[in-house]
């Protein structure tokens, strides 16, 4: 979930908030992001001794280009490459790279006209944890609509699929999310997001009878010691609160807090054990440079 952080505030604004009147073809758009994140539950687990925290650095390079197709449509395509480096749990560190594209349609050149997009994203992961290596795919539709000169509304539905080296990391889910950006003018932008996902999550924990009983797949997790990774069906809620401020030419700082809660859809069905649930908080500071 860490890599979606700037999708709304930066990526979309970067690709869709060009000249307001027309969807003009652009030159190449380059962006570099560097972020520092504290994650209070990298194991996606619950209970004392099971939850582990860590910090990680992220570096991400994006290059994109848009192509005008008609007066109302354009194609945006891009490549990205980056990596995460964790402090304590090396197995979670990874390189990643991929492609993304979106076919966009804007109803008119009016200020408050909505922009619809049909998007696809494919990427590959190379983790220090071999089990996690693999590919990710996302496809969906989304809409961006300015509600006022200060407020943008963004909404999307998507299908996410991950194809890992271990079957535990073969996951898929369906997601729906909304995001509101509130511009403070020179003071920056505040954004608030909410997302609901229904599908697979992976939780890492010491051997747990409730988890293994409801798990679709289990493997000894090579990113941690004496823990198992469980793939389970869950309902997940993610909220994001962030602040983005630009400075200089193409520079910005971004501060965000993400909170997520995943609740298993199945109950172990014995001993009065509730549905397993975990909560995650991520706090990030990011520097963005666009040129």
């Amino acid at each position: 979930m860490g890599r979606a952080r700037f999708t709304v505030t930066a990526a979309l604004l970067g690709t869709l908030c060009g000249p307001p009147a027309v969807l003009a073809a652009q030159l190449f758009d380059y962006r570099i992001e560097a972020a520092y994140t504290y994650d209070d539950n990298v194991t996606r687990s619950e209970g004392a001794g099971n939850v582990l925290s860590d910090k990680f650095l992220t570096l991400n390079f994006n290059v994109g280009k848009s192509f005008r197709l008609t007066d109302h449509t354009r194609l945006v395509a891009g490549l990205f490459l980056g990596g995460d480096a964790y402090d304590k749990y090396d197995g979670l560190s990874r390189y990643f790279g991929g492609i993304q594209g979106e076919l966009q349609y804007r109803t008119s050149g009016e200020f408050d006209a909505a922009t619809f997009g049909l998007f696809f994203r494919g990427s590959g992961d190379q983790y220090d944890s071999e089990l996690r290596d693999g590919y990710r795919y996302t496809a969906g539709v989304r809409v961006l609509k300015p509600l006022s000169d200060r407020i943008d509304l963004f909404a999307a539905v998507a299908y996410n699929k991950r194809d890992g080296k271990s079957t535990v990391f073969d996951t898929e889910d369906y997601a729906a999310r909304v995001n509101l950006d509130y511009s403070l003018g020179r003071g920056g932008t505040v954004y608030l997001g909410a997302e609901y996902r229904n599908g697979d999550v992976v939780s890492t924990s010491p051997a747990s009878l409730p988890l293994i009983t409801i798990a679709e797949a289990v493997v000894v997790d090579d990113a941690f010691t004496d823990r198992l990774a469980y793939r389970i069906k869950a309902d997940t809620i993610i909220t994001t609160l962030g602040y983005n401020i630009a400075f200089g030419a193409g520079h910005a700082l971004d501060f965000s807090w993400r909170w997520a809660q995943a609740t298993a859809t199945d109950s172990p069905g014995f001993g009065g054990v509730d549905k397993p649930r975990y909560v995650v908080n991520q706090y990030s500071i990011a520097y963005l440079f666009r040129f």
Partner: peptide, 10 residues
């Protein structure tokens, strides 16, 4: 263009 991943980790 690799798009498939065998579950060799298992």
């Amino acid at each position: 263009g690799a798009c498939g991943q065998d579950n060799t980790g298992d």
